[in-house]
């Protein structure tokens, strides 16, 4: 298998603060990869480097084997992104926003757009200024999920969504992975990540702490003297940070 994302020894400095300090991440094609860490640990910074929005200070980041900073535009044809804090243009309606974002990648499949709008129960005629946080999130989700990207990068995609819509998001992720697409999922909802992802990378203070399947993470925890069978991702996560 070839890797969709390869990150090694990634370093990012903002002035004198070091946001990433030798971070590593490898996402194979076709994988749903959970990307976990507490607030400020460097998840979003990593994702912004992968999107070519900011430049790495050191180490290497590769998207489909290419440099995301240099080849941003051509790589972006192959990916879709949903940020955790969606800010929209107040005077555009949800429908206009979705179409505009879709047009940047050559248009959306109208059937898929309609289907997603119905499932997420999004009112397309409202101006973005009147949307709640959850509804803004839905706009970005529909715009991303209606594309035919190879790689989906989700950074806290369901923040503000109600549990029913969160379930819709789960279904959608299962559908796109069923079609062989790759997903990088950063989230604090550990149950969600455990359900969807097959591989996990846990980071802290800009460094990778653990990476592996749920089983492998359990084994690591077991070697520290805990009962592996009963451990959920949440237990593992909390275990890592309380130690």
């Amino acid at each position: 298998m070839s890797a969709a994302i390869e990150v090694e020894g990634l370093v990012k400095n903002f002035g004198s603060t070091r946001a990433l300090d030798g971070l590593g991440l490898r996402v194979e094609a076709g994988q749903v990869h959970g990307f976990l860490g507490p607030n400020g640990s460097g998840k979003s910074t990593t994702i912004r480097i992968l999107l070519g929005l900011i430049r790495a200070s050191g180490g290497s980041a590769r998207l489909f084997g290419e440099d995301p900073w240099k080849n941003a535009v051509s790589l972006h044809r192959r990916l879709a992104y949903v940020p955790g804090d969606v800010n929209l243009w107040p005077n555009l309606t949800g429908g206009e926003t979705i179409d505009m974002l879709g047009s940047l990648r050559g248009g959306l499949d109208p059937k898929r757009r309609k289907d997603l709008v119905e499932r997420f129960e999004l009112d397309l005629t409202k101006k973005a200024s009147t949307y709640s946080k959850g509804n803004r999130q839905k706009v970005a989700l529909v715009a991303a999920l209606a594309t035919d990207a190879e790689l989906f990068i989700f950074d806290e995609p369901t923040s503000g969504l109600d549990p029913l819509k969160e379930e819709v998001f789960h279904e959608c992720v299962r559908e796109i992975t069923g079609e062989g697409h790759t997903v990088l999922l950063s989230s604090h909802i550990l149950g969600q990540v455990q359900d969807l992802a097959t591989m996990f990378t846990i980071i802290r203070a800009g460094k990778t702490v653990e990476t592996g399947t749920l089983e492998e993470l359990r084994q690591i925890a077991a070697s520290a003297g805990r009962d592996p069978e009963s451990l959920s991702l949440e237990d593992l996560f909390l275990g890592i940070y309380s130690s």
């Binding site: 555009l92 309606t93 949800g94 429908g95 206009e96 926003t97 979705i98 179409d99 505009m100 047009s103 940047l104 248009g107 397309l124 005629t125 409202k126 101006k127 200024s129 009147t130």
Partner: peptide, 20 residues
Amino acid sequence: IQPRPGPPAASPSLLHPLGF
């Protein structure tokens, strides 16, 4: 005064970066 609803889909002029 509350904002009024708008079109559910974008007009063609919006579907170009410069138009947007």
